[in-house]
Design a protein around this nucleic acid. Structure first.
Lengths: 218, 218
DNA sequence: AGTTCCATGTAACCCGTTACATGATTAC
DNA sequence: GTAATCATGTAACGGGTTACATGGAACT
């Protein structure tokens, strides 16, 4: 349902067609907060129209058709009442880099690989940062006070991330620290379990080979 | 598919049952990064077993049954190869507070309401912060070097957010700034469109009332 | 003439959640 | 004895994505 509000919100910025919405999302700052695909836009627009939240106006009846949507009074009110609802706290954080990091030790993965992931992340984050700065300078884009606040938020968050990455890479380049809070010696157990699972397989493979040889000899 | 890796990852920390996994996610730091419900755990575990990535061992055959899962060699290898893949950049940010903020001006919502949302967010973020600090002290939990790095990440990110909130509230308490980059006078247009949509409705309502009166008189 | 862009739409699919069903065990 | 907790599972549903289908307009 959140997609409905994204759609209402985009129309509130300026009347537009389904096609325009996607372009707006991809170009503008909304794309940093939400995704929109045609597969969801058009069916949703249809229903929003049925519900009387938006109104379509055909533009260019000749050949190339285009439906430009505008909010109805109901639509403006619906948007407002959504804005007034307390937004949910954004947890869990869906970030594969962090999720992977949690399992790094148990899986016995290489430190350098994680460093590579972090460096790649850093590059992308710096890209986002310069993109935002570019933007704030370029006065062709329409950014009101609230949009600026969001850009500032993203900037500060990405900057915090970049600093963390620097510290983290520095730490990972030093020899591994022993688990600080490992009252149950889990780290040791993990290593043993890993070794066992992989060795058992070898044994199984050996046995298989052996039985094949026996079969061949029969 | 990411859920599969979350499951493999949790088992890598320690062999456990489906039920245990959910508990682990809800108690531990994994819950900050990912969610797991029984409706996805059990079907996935079943298939992971079929694929030979995990192995179940029945525990307590008497009455209360419990299946404890362990990774196979294949499972450890699959987990590792996932860890080696470069994680995707976490965009878009799915945060309703920010999405709402973008539309705040166009919708003509009240500044105080946004301040309230920010204050609520601040409270929750401070809660997360103290939760994490509590945790880092409490040595009953098993947190290895990598887990610590993730906690540090979350901490720094939430701290950045709290600082941003303070600045933002301070700004919102001052009178609104005019749009900085409004080459097309969109802010003015938005207000006009809003007014028009709501007034048109009033007119429509008046007409409706009028026609009803006419009907009644007939 | 062909490619690219503008523009709208549908249908199949995927992944995950919610809700429901079941039953043993433990604590009060 | 009854409520809460441990424990596993299924089925229906939902929301969104990908891929496909279609066609005019503009550029080259």
């Amino acid at each position: 349902m959140s997609i409905d509000y994204t759609i209402l919100g985009i129309i509130s910025l300026a009347p537009c067609s389904g096609y325009d919405m996607k372009a707006e999302v991809e170009r503008g700052s909304i794309g940093m907060l939400s995704a929109l695909s045609f597969g969801s836009i058009y069916p949703r627009l249809k229903q929003l129209e049925e519900e009387g939240l938006v109104e379509a106006q055909q533009v260019g009846a000749d050949g190339r058709r285009k439906k430009v949507y505008e909010l109805t009074g109901e639509g403006w009110r619906e948007l407002l009442s959504w804005l007034e609802e307390t937004p949910e706290y954004p947890l869990p954080i869906h970030d594969d880099l962090l999720l992977k990091t949690i399992f790094w030790g148990a899986a016995g993965a290489k430190r350098e690989t994680l460093i590579q992931h972090l460096q790649a992340r850093r590059e992308e984050s710096l890209g986002v940062l310069s993109y935002i700065e570019e933007w704030q300078k370029n006065d062709a884009a329409f950014i009101d006070e609230y949009g600026m606040l969001v850009l500032t938020y993203i900037k500060s968050r990405v900057e915090a991330e970049v600093s963390w990455i620097a510290l983290t890479i520095a730490q990972l380049e030093r020899p591994p620290e022993l688990p600080i809070q490992d009252s149950k010696w889990l780290a040791v157990l993990q290593k043993a379990r890993r070794k066992k699972a992989l060795e058992d397989e070898e044994v199984a493979k050996d046995e298989e080979v052996a039985s094949q040889i026996v079969e061949e000899q029969e």
